[in-house]
Design a protein around this nucleic acid. Structure first.
Lengths: 185, 185
DNA sequence: AAGATACTTGCTGTCAACAAGCAAGTGATT
DNA sequence: AATCACTTGCTTGTTGACAGCAAGTATCTT
């Protein structure tokens, strides 16, 4: 059922996809999606959690215990790898994150949680880098983390809306270059 | 009518706001919004263009003929100034940009256009900075511009979804620091 | 007067959401 | 092993809300 939702969202967007379409595409009746997930927002929330979980696991494997600047650069590579590797999942997650920006969105909390989690991960990486003497002591850790998360959110968004004309990898190179030069001791 | 739309979008979001609500809030009948703008997407497109135009003018005034790193830093300050100065407009524009991310969105072009315009502005600033010997010759101009636009998109998005816990200004400081140290000759 | 402009009202098809149903189990009781 | 009580998984009927359209009415213009 969630797979059917992914395909339909990619084709028609979240608004024009109907619960009946999702149920029927998955080989069931028009009513099942509503029955299982309670509401359209409920389905999207479940989908957001599901893909979000996959993404965080994928990220974890990509970073693999690294700390400091190494972790941040590895994470950037992992984002790029994810969007080339599982573009459908990445696109849908980004679309859902965007949708949750609207006031009254019922899965806003889920989306915010994923971002907060990512930001706190970055804070940890930077702190660990400082403790290992790899990263300068005088930087504002949360500001750098916010900046970093802003960049990754923004780049994924830009990739989503203009995948064809957008060179994800070269922007990442610029960002990695920045991280190495400004954070290292 | 557009003002009414802004207020309602801020309170209920784009989906739960109805055309009838907009018309009636503006002191007209339930049908006028449809009549004037053709469709809900048409209204949001008009609104996106209207606020987008304001924003680009505001930005132009803020940058005021500066070039190179100065222009980029001034633009960052201007973004911050805008979201503190006209938070309603900024929030709604961001919400609309997010909404346009979904496939089949009928004002996607408008939204992409604003981003493209911003990116080409940045490219111009950087090139001018290079010509004036202020910015290094060996940097990848479009990559830096993409990185910069990604950052501004991302930071505005994060501000939108968590304005309370988010320190916009300090992230901007980190970004400005970065621009000065890595781009200057 | 005759059209144009600005707005309203009536209507239709579509959709989310809900509720009532049904069929195929599962498991306890005698 | 046969019956009964109950659950699970799914379908179908229905309702209210909304977008969009078409046919109006009123006000202004010339």
């Amino acid at each position: 059922m969630l797979d059917a939702a992914i395909e339909l969202i990619l084709e028609y967007g979240t608004e024009k996809t109907t619960l009946a379409m999702i149920g029927e595409k998955a080989g069931y009746s028009r009513g099942l999606a509503t029955y299982r997930f309670g509401s359209k927002a409920g389905l999207y929330d479940t989908l957001c959690k599901s893909i979000g979980r996959n993404w965080l696991e994928y990220l974890k494997r990509g970073v693999d215990g690294k700390i400091g600047v190494d972790a941040m650069c590895a994470a950037l590579d992992t984002v790029y790898q994810w969007v080339t590797d599982s573009p459908e999942d990445a696109r849908v997650l980004q679309i859902l994150h965007c949708g949750s920006a609207s006031p009254g969105s019922e899965f806003q909390e889920t989306s915010i949680g994923i971002h907060r989690r990512q930001q706190s991960d970055v804070v940890e990486w930077v702190r660990a880098g400082q403790q290992h003497g790899q990263i300068r002591q005088d930087i504002d850790v949360t500001a750098v983390a916010a900046e970093y998360v802003a960049y990754t959110s923004g780049i994924t968004y830009l990739w989503l809306i203009s995948a064809d004309t957008f060179n994800f990898d070269s922007a990442n190179q610029a960002m990695k270059n920045y991280l190495r030069t400004t954070l290292s001791v």
